[in-house]
Design a protein around this nucleic acid. Sequence first.
DNA 1: GCCGATCCTTGACCCAGATCAAAAATCGCG
DNA 2: CGCGATTTTTGATCTGGGTCAAGGATCGGC
Lengths: 248, 248
Amino acid sequence: MLNEPDLDIPQECSDCPIRHRAVCARCEADELEMLDQIKYYRRFEAGQTVIWAGDRMDFVGSVVTGIATLTQTMEDGRRQMVGLLLPSDFVGRPGRDSAAYDVVATSDIVMCCFRKKPFEEMMARTPHIAQRLLEMTLDELDAAREWMLVLGRKTAREKIASLIAIIARRDAAIGMKGSAGPLVVELPLTREAMADYLGLTLETVSRQISALKRDGVIRLDGKRRVTIPDINRLLDEAGDDSDGGLPT
Amino acid sequence: MLNEPDLDIPQECSDCPIRHRAVCARCEADELEMLDQIKYYRRFEAGQTVIWAGDRMDFVGSVVTGIATLTQTMEDGRRQMVGLLLPSDFVGRPGRDSAAYDVVATSDIVMCCFRKKPFEEMMARTPHIAQRLLEMTLDELDAAREWMLVLGRKTAREKIASLIAIIARRDAAIGMKGSAGPLVVELPLTREAMADYLGLTLETVSRQISALKRDGVIRLDGKRRVTIPDINRLLDEAGDDSDGGLPT
DNA sequence: GCCGATCCTTGACCCAGATCAAAAATCGCG
DNA sequence: CGCGATTTTTGATCTGGGTCAAGGATCGGC
């Protein structure tokens, strides 16, 4: 915390790490320049709440680096994570002015924000943005529906395996490390956050991770680093059709 | 079945019941005319599968009348409903050519279909369609996320109460029957379908409905017709914040 | 008005995962 | 390095909802 100089992330869109995956992905140079005019960066520390559910939201934006979560909380404290926000994911909903969910930074994050009003105006004039946002929203909807199957019908063991598989798939998609060797993934979540994601208790999460380790499905290196000797074995444990996974 | 003359639903967009809520909602007269050119109606009987997951989909479309479901099935037969399609809801995803989920007609339904290719071309040229589709997709995403809380964290009793509340809310939104009296809703799903929706077994669904009835939260008239004497009581049982419901 | 099919209810029992409790590992910090 | 705070693991026990099984309702067809 102290060793964090308040550097104001002087970034050009042109060398932005999410340039080709975020809402701006399809924008032409001139459109990008207009976005540039209304954008600003914000940094949040791990654990910090970016937005509280119900709060007025006067910006929307993209996660540039780091990981955040979308969670819903009941009055009695039960919590369910409803989204995992990775770099390039979009936060906020054009046309709505209060947040529907808590957004919490899981790691330190940087967000590229747009004031809502100008962004909405620009969206109306720039089909490329709306098109890309539609595409991203459809992807999120698919992910949400896949998650409904996990929450509604899978056992605790299958849930854990599914979560690891999903993280592994994402890592593979981003890193494109074509190595055939055993995959290594870093769990970006605490046991408690995993429990919130999976609709389990943290004790059950811990027990099932231990069980998968005992059975040789995964290996653990510290608490967070997971080695997957055989991805098909893992997908099998997840109850997924053996294909859907990452291409060999 | 026999008493169903094969009438070919000669409908004009102008008097279409979903004209102002479906993807076409924002279209101008000329745009509507173009849609008219590429649309055709299809009718499916209750129980019929409209599309199988994995099948090639060469059309997209809207539910005009009736109710359909979106379900995912695991190899061993476990099933999870991931969407409930009501009149005006959109089926299919532009830019993807195989179906991700089974679409099953729960009642007899009529669909307004568009061949995918022409529809996609038209979407690229007609921002009004893409805009409306984005809005609808964002709504569906919200609904999916609300459902994730139900699936992940609610008890069986709360799940049933949530389902009834959601159906009541929809009925109120459509019918706009401002009557202050006890609400009456028709459950459009069998116990088994409810179980698939809620991540429960049909036995548990039956037991919990009986329990809510015994406790006076609902009254039953036949198997499907539910009377709600006190909507706030129901919302309470659903574990929702007491406000979120239908406006008094 | 009877018959088979489908849908729904209820009971008895069991087990996966929750809950309660405590100890162990890990980490940041003075 | 040692100490408190946080996170994780593991154990013991309990319970909500699943599973298995048996009847009831309801409905369309003849």
